[in-house]
């Protein structure tokens, strides 16, 4: 959890505690959902805007603002920040240029070789991480993300859930946790996590749902 001014943080946590359960868990839950929302609008700013949303919520609560629904209040504040951020940045143009570079890789041989090398490194890291997982976890990852797209994917997961004797939501949550862990492992092996902010956004509150 980030450092907020003590009184503001206390006000936010006190309000979050009214949602039931640990206020720290509720804090992370709101933050995760905010990031999910913000990624829809300003993906490159999502983490930062989520923190700023929580900052602003904390200040308002400390000032005495009465909030009926903390989640919808968070959404309202986040929407305001998106509006403000859009006024300040021309982020989408940057995103488009970056995406264009991705979909149109450079054609010179050296760059192509480096891309191929990087792909091989990612693949090697992924396989190493899967080897380090429990065999049942690795099998679940493989099975959950196999099976093509559309209807075939849904049917594949339904069969997998039946086989494991769990519901679809529980299966999804297991797969999400495993994939997040796998991605973290690959990022660590490749030194990516040192270069960027953490991307761990699994919604802890939902882990047990449907289990």
């Amino acid at each position: 959890m980030r450092d907020l001014a003590d009184d503001s943080l206390k006000a936010l946590l006190t309000r979050l505690a009214r949602e039931g359960g640990s206020s720290e868990v509720a804090y992370e839950r709101v933050r995760t959902r905010l990031i999910r929302y913000l990624r829809l609008h300003l993906p490159a700013e999502a983490d930062d805007l989520a923190d700023r949303t929580l900052d602003r919520m904390a200040h308002r609560l400390h000032e005495g603002t009465e909030v009926h629904n903390i989640y919808l209040y968070a959404l309202g504040v986040a929407r305001m920040l998106v509006h403000e951020a859009r006024a300040r940045f021309a982020r989408e143009q940057v995103s488009l240029e970056e995406a264009a570079a991705l979909s149109n890789p450079p054609l010179d041989t050296e760059a192509a070789e480096e891309r191929a090398a990087e792909s091989e490194a990612v693949f090697a890291a992924l396989q190493a991480c899967m080897q380090a997982m429990s065999s049942s976890g690795a099998a679940l990852i493989i099975d959950y993300y196999a099976g093509g797209d559309g209807t075939a994917r849904i049917e594949n997961r339904r069969v997998l859930a039946d086989r494991l004797g769990i519901g679809m939501n529980a299966l999804r949550n297991r797969a999400l946790r495993l994939r997040d862990a796998l991605e973290r492992c690959v990022q660590e092996k490749l030194g990516w996590r040192d270069e960027e902010r953490s991307f761990d956004t699994s919604d802890g509150s939902d882990e047990a749902s449907g289990s």
């Binding site: 995103s95 488009l96 995406a99 991705l102 792909s119 990852i141 796998l182 991605e183």
Partner: peptide
Amino acid sequence: EKYLLATVADRRRLQIAAALSRTPNATSPS
């Protein structure tokens, strides 16, 4: 590309997805 691959972190996740797609399924539900 426009909405989900806008950041370096997203593009790295795509690389991992691509690597995952190269990992064949060792088992199948059946």
